[in-house]
Amino acid sequence: MALVRVKNLSRVFDVSKPWLNRVIERRSKAFLTAVSEVDFEVEPRSTYALVGESGSGKSTIGKMLVGLLKPSSGTVEIEDIDLASETDAAKIDAIRSDIQMIFQDPYASLNPRWRVRDIIVEPVASRGGNTEGLAEKLLEQVGLSVQDAGKFPHEFSGGQRQRICIARALASEPNLIVCDEPTSALDVSVQAQVLNLMSDLKDDFGLTYVLISHDLTVVRHMADKIGVLYLGRLVEEASPNDLFETPKHPYTQMLLEAAPQMDGFGREVQPPEGEIPDPINPPSGCAFHPRCPIAQDVCKQQRPEMRSLNGTRVACHLAE
């Protein structure tokens, strides 16, 4: 029984210029497909990671999961409820307190004018819940001290702020936490502290994570299942071992090969060809075909369906 069920999810942004410019310059409207027909499921108490480079649509998916953005088509069901179409206010409210998010920038995600106590209890206080001693309890759980409740965010370092963000995310006792690049703004030694904390909390509270990241080492360390995105499309989904040992999609192979390795002293790799295409005019067929070393004619014409292959799912005509 999956906790999160994403079906055929797409999101299109209108990136046209204002109509007057369009009329004068004789241009038509421009649309950017950030996410295109993505399917996946997240099991309860697991960590599902979405990896991809810039423009892969991973953050857009994250925002649709938590209801900050509405899908253009397709559905996101969490505990069998679709936030975008549900009309029962009580159900929406119940789901909202079950979903939380941790953001990338610990400096922008805390209101600088609020005291830490008020920040942490807001998810509960705004529903009129009991917040007595809540902030203090959560602060201790994330490794800060009780006295910190009376301080302002600017008195904390980046790592400590991210702990406060985690405390806020835990306040409403959620089941699902979407973590959007939770450690990419942090230094390595602080990143280790935050990742360990996230693992501990997952076990203690029975949490489910959707982890959005561009960092393959973090993803491998945290995830139970990994979905690789390219240009808004899911190209491969596998367990960490399968993905890192036997990547099936040429893009995954390229990504793993290109990532710098800590023990790769003087490693001479053939750097990958080309760059990520413009998402406003994505290539026909398989979006990766212009950079793919094994592309054939069928790849240029037909978009590959997601298919199962030895326990992983891959969207490639040629993978085997």
């Binding site: 390595v188 030694s189 990143q191 280790a192 990742l195 360990n196 693992s199 393959l216 080492t217 973090v218 491998r220 360390h221 945290m222 960490p240 890192f244 390795q261 800590m262 023990d263």
Partner: peptide, 13 residues
């Protein structure tokens, strides 16, 4: 404290 590909899901130092 850097997660290493070769070491899987050990607890980070």
């Amino acid at each position: 404290s850097t997660p290493l590909a070769s070491q899987g899901k050990r607890r980070l130092h």
